[in-house]
Design a protein around this nucleic acid. Structure first.
Length: 958
RNA sequence: GCUCGAGUGGCGGAACUGGUAGACGCGCUGGAUUCAAAAUCCAGUUCUUUCGGGAGUGUGGGUUCGAUUCCCACCUCGAGUACCA
């Protein structure tokens, strides 16, 4: 009986589905284990062979853990809100829900084909109202919370209100907007309701703000920082400009330090942690305040207008952040970002024209231009001066686009002797470069070596090294009230509004311009129907097209827009949430996905706790994985989640690249030359469908002619009667014709072959090229294993139970040991080799012992579950193999009595010698020295030294 | 530029805490079987060689009886990041 993988795989997939073999139970005495994959966005293209790599790895681990006696949660779902379905809707008018449904169906078919042990009863879809109800709910929780720095956690907004009522906000230490002013309890009592709401918005963890956002005109929406790469949109590569808009924001900055600290507690890849650390960008230093001096020009212009009489000293202040406060005496100018709000105020009439022109020119340049061109030094003097906090000397204030508005305070104290950018700027504009370093030459470049810094020409800092000087200067700044030690983060609050249709609606309506939350019991607020998916003519987001999109506070329902009266019926928010909203808590929702009363039950999360193993791509390092950690910490603060980090261990699977096939066209002709002959001609490279190429890189010319009309009349110059293509490893993509679909592989070789092969390719975390040719190796392995079990398969075994031989047991236990170690280390590629060796050995040993073949089936089952189930059944079992206990390794079967010693001369192995393992050092040496080959190697020399490591090696030196 | 990661046959890759480099598979070569093909099986396959050997894990150095493995410098490739004050 042949190995009929089609029949076997279909049979067991049906069995698993029917028997709900992989359904996880929330009440179990077994220890829990939660294995999670990053859920996919169901795109129209379906899966290619690169996508399942991580799913196969996690499935092996999940199945292994079941054999090890764990209650395993291994769910799957879909990140089903997103841009592609909406872009398709804009083009075709088809509702994104329909597109999404179709794509999900296709994904599900492809996933099912691969035999994953997912518990599909727990499937979630972010675009399902029963799911996004809870995304909206978390949003409301964030709205109703503020961050208390004293307790270092998020707390209920009602507590903040009661503090305001009692004592105002002076003593409150909260993460809030910078422009929050101080008020007393009395003030609070006297504020209007609207003012109170405005003030509270400055504290809430999600808030409305006029923010400089990344606006992408082509997509018609704003984008978060992590969705902008090199100044263009991550999706589609469209230009992005800066624009001020009122948007929902997430106060993730409140969690900056905890997001950083938490990285030490989780087992995630170092590069991923590094990206997050970088993205958060903590730097320690000081803030310092420089007073602006009113110069003659401004004073004259003002007195001309007869507006002022009193001296105007210190009306404006410039706050800077610096990591080198110790170099403050080296400040010879200040630079403001062109967007800095003080620019207009401090510019003198003489300089106004130049400054305005510069500001305008910078505003016009896109972010991309600005980044691409970092070499050109540009800037303008404002005419204004600031006063040095200690020397009281006037310092000229410049503007320059090397200072970024979005970092720190958007202003720097420029110390050209200690910072290369300041140095270059000073050189370019002939600004003095005072030297404040002991014994350092700064005629060529700035000196930024903190470790070797001794401060000079700096009054009370003279002679101090960096560390002491920094400490001293901060004390002095605090003494004069013009600065303090400060920690600055690069991380910005995240923009949470998108001007798109296909996303979660905000559960928000507006009364008198102030946002109000819809109560929990009326969630979900479902997406309205719209006629078209583009922004409205007045530039409102697509939800502005809805005719039924207002909130009736009497009936608590969505009603027709005509009914709006701003007394009981109010307008609803038109923005939707970003892609990362739905993925920021889905891992918790899987624990209790059908719960309609709560995001999940207490029992469910008490049992499952957190994700034990999370597998997914590294591209989510600063997006999904940072936002999710933020939401989890928030849920933890509020007592909704028991763990502060949602995933203990994370693995990034590497990318599978494609191996493109290239044909060579002789320039200016329709002749194609085989790869080996191309050097004799001038040729152009053309990529052709990899599916037309066989295992020996030969292309079928008849198929090629049919593939594209260009090749129909083409001539081919062959080598040895064949046309050989060139190969190039590059990203798998439709445009290179190198995409390989799992469906085709399953059809030809089966899912077990595909699973084994994907693992066999190489280490999980490494990127590696796909080459379909290699799959024949693992496929014939499966045929061999099938053959090994053939006595049981055909029932030809004549009743006699074969006792396992010592050899059989040795092979088996060697395999158990290696496979178990491999799985624990996520080294799945080497397990596949181990199986091959095992089956080769057992075949040679003609093993027919059940005592060997039963445990072997279990070992193989996580990797190739279909064939394992079938063999298990043929061995006489009526239950699924999925929970059969993992075989126990016993070292006694591996004990050897002798060892093939490698005999080395000066470290080079020259020959081997079989010697008993219990032989002593001296006897080994004597035996080796007596060997004729030893004498031949030595050629009469006397060895200087003989190293004998019993059980390992003999090395003869001399 | 900075931060990580990686360089081993024609290819994917293996090698435990320093101890027989190239496991396993692909491809290739030869053979068996077959009318033929597929499939299957057997042998060989790092380079070099005067067939005794000799060299060899990106390059150069170091530590060691012994280095793919540890240390230093450099080169190349990949990923992330980019005027962060």
């Amino acid at each position: 009986m042949n190995y009929n993988f089609r029949e076997i795989e279909a049979k067991w997939q049906k069995y698993w589905a029917k028997n709900q073999t992989f359904k996880a139970h929330n009440d179990s005495d077994k220890p829990k284990y939660y294995v999670l994959d990053m859920f996919p966005y169901p795109s129209g293209a379906g899966l290619h062979v690169g996508h399942p790599l991580g799913y196969i790895a996690s499935d092996i681990y999940a199945r292994y853990k079941r054999h090890k006696g764990f209650n395993v949660l291994h769910p799957m779902g879909y990140d089903s809100f997103g841009l592609p379905a909406e872009q398709y809707a804009i083009q075709t008018g088809q509702h994104p829900a329909i597109t999404t449904e179709t794509n999900i169906k296709r994904y599900r078919e492809q996933l099912d084909e691969l035999g994953f042990s997912f518990d599909w009863s727990r499937e979630v879809r972010t675009s399902n109202p029963q799911y996004y109800k809870w995304t909206q709910w978390v949003f409301i929780q964030l709205f109703d919370s503020w961050y208390n720095k004293k307790t270092d956690k998020a707390e209920d907004i009602s507590e903040l209100i009661s503090i305001f009522q009692k004592e105002g906000n002076e003593k409150v230490e909260a993460v809030c907007d910078d422009d929050t002013s101080i008020f007393s309890a009395e003030d609070w009592a006297n504020f209007s309701d609207k003012t109170r709401q405005e003030i509270l918005l400055k504290y809430r963890l999600t808030y409305l703000a006029d923010a400089e956002v990344n606006w992408c005109p082509a997509l018609g929406t704003v984008l978060a920082n992590d969705e902008v790469v090199n100044g263009v949109s991550e999706r589609g590569g469209h230009p992005v400009i800066r624009k001020k808009m009122t948007q929902w924001m997430m106060r993730i900055t409140a969690y900056a330090q905890r997001l950083l600290d938490g990285l030490d507690t989780i087992d995630w890849p170092q590069p991923l942690k590094d990206s997050q650390t970088n993205w958060i960008g903590r730097s320690e230093g000081a803030s310092a305040t420089f007073n602006v001096i009113d110069n003659l020009d401004t004073e004259r212009s003002r007195s001309d207008q007869d507006v002022i009489s009193a001296p105007l000293n210190h009306q404006f202040q410039i706050e800077v952040f610096t990591t080198r406060p110790d170099t403050i005496f080296g400040t010879s100018f200040m630079t403001l970002a062109p967007e800095h709000e003080l620019v207009a105020k401090i510019t003198t009439p003489d300089q106004k024209e130049a400054v305005d022109a510069y500001v305008e020119a910078t505003a016009k340049r896109s972010e991309r231009d600005r980044m691409a061109d970092v070499k050109t030094i540009s800037g303008v003097f404002t005419g204004g001066y600031a006063e040095h906090p200690f020397t009281k000397e006037p310092i000229p204030i410049w503007i320059g686009d090397y200072v970024l508005a979005s970092y720190g305070t958007g202003a720097v104290m420029a110390v050209p002797c200690g910072d290369q950018r300041d140095y270059d700027f000073a050189k370019h504009f002939n600004i003095p470069i005072p030297n404040i370093f002991e014994g350092v030459d700064i005629s060529e470049e700035a000196f930024a070596d903190k470790a070797n810094t001794i401060i000079a020409n700096s009054d009370f800092l003279d002679g101090l090294p960096y560390k002491e000087a920094t400490k001293k200067i901060i004390e002095e700044l605090e003494k004069i009230g013009q600065g303090e030690g400060k920690i600055n983060y690069r991380l910005r609050d995240a923009v949470f509004s998108r001007q798109r249709y296909w996303g979660e609606p905000f559960p928000v309506y507006y009364v008198d311009g102030m946002p109000q939350m819809i109560s929990d019991e009326h969630l979900p607020l479902e997406l309205p129907e719209v006629k078209k998916y583009l922004p409205t003519e007045t530039g409102e987001p697509p939800l502005g097209n809805a005719t039924k999109w207002t909130w009736n506070t009497d009936t608590n329902s969505v009603v027709e827009n005509e009914q709006i009266d701003n007394t009981t019926v109010f307008s609803l928010e038109l923005n939707t949430m970003p892609g990362w909203a739905g993925s920021s808590q889905y891992f918790n929702r899987y624990m209790d996905p059908q719960n309609s009363k709560a995001i999940y039950s207490q029992e469910a999360i008490d049992y499952w706790q957190d994700v034990d193993l999370y597998i997914g791509g590294s591209e989510h390092a600063t997006g999904h994985l940072l936002y999710s950690r933020f939401w989890q910490k928030f849920l933890f603060d509020k007592g909704i989640a028991p763990k502060e980090e949602f995933a203990k261990k994370l693995i990034n699977q590497g990318m599978i690249t494609g191996t493109s096939a290239i044909v060579y066209r002789i320039s200016g002709t329709n002749k194609y030359v085989s790869c080996g002959l191309k050097k004799d001609y001038e040729v152009e490279e053309l990529r052709v469908d990899v599916n037309l190429v066989n295992t020996s890189d030969e292309i079928n010319i008849e198929d090629l002619k049919k593939w594209q009309p260009d090749f129909k009349e083409a001539e081919f110059i062959l080598e040895d009667g064949k046309y050989v293509v060139g190969r190039e490893v590059e990203k798998m993509s439709k445009r290179w014709f190198n995409v390989v679909n799992p469906d085709a592989i399953c059809e030809e070789y089966g899912a077990d072959s595909l699973r084994l092969y994907e693992m066999f390719l190489g280490p999980l975390e490494q990127s590696k090229p796909w080459n379909t040719a290699g799959i024949s190796g693992v496929h014939s392995f499966l045929k061999k294993i099938w053959k090994l079990y053939s006595p049981f398969v055909d029932g030809s075994l004549s009743g006699v139970e074969a006792e396992p031989t010592a050899e059989n047991l040795k092979t088996l236990h060697k395999t158990i040991k290696k496979v178990e170690e491999d799985i624990e280390n996520f080294s799945f590629n080497t397990s596949v080799s181990t199986f091959m060796i095992c089956v080769n050995e057992l075949t040679a040993q003609k093993c027919t012992s059940k005592a060997i073949l039963e445990p072997l089936a279990i070992l193989v089952s996580p990797y190739a579950p279909h064939i394992a189930e079938e063999l298990w059944e043929k061995l006489g079992h009526s239950e699924s193999i999925s929970e059969a206990p993992f075989p126990k390794f016993e070292g006694k079967y591996l004990v050897e009595s002798s060892k093939e010693y490698p005999i080395s001369f000066n470290g080079k192995m020259r020959f081997t010698m079989e010697l008993p393992l219990d032989m002593g050092k001296d006897d080994i040496e004597a035996a080796v020295m007596a060997h004729e080959k030893t004498q031949a190697q030595l050629q009469g020399r006397t060895p200087k030294k003989v190293i004998v490591v019993p059980g390992r090696i003999v090395n003869i030196v001399g």
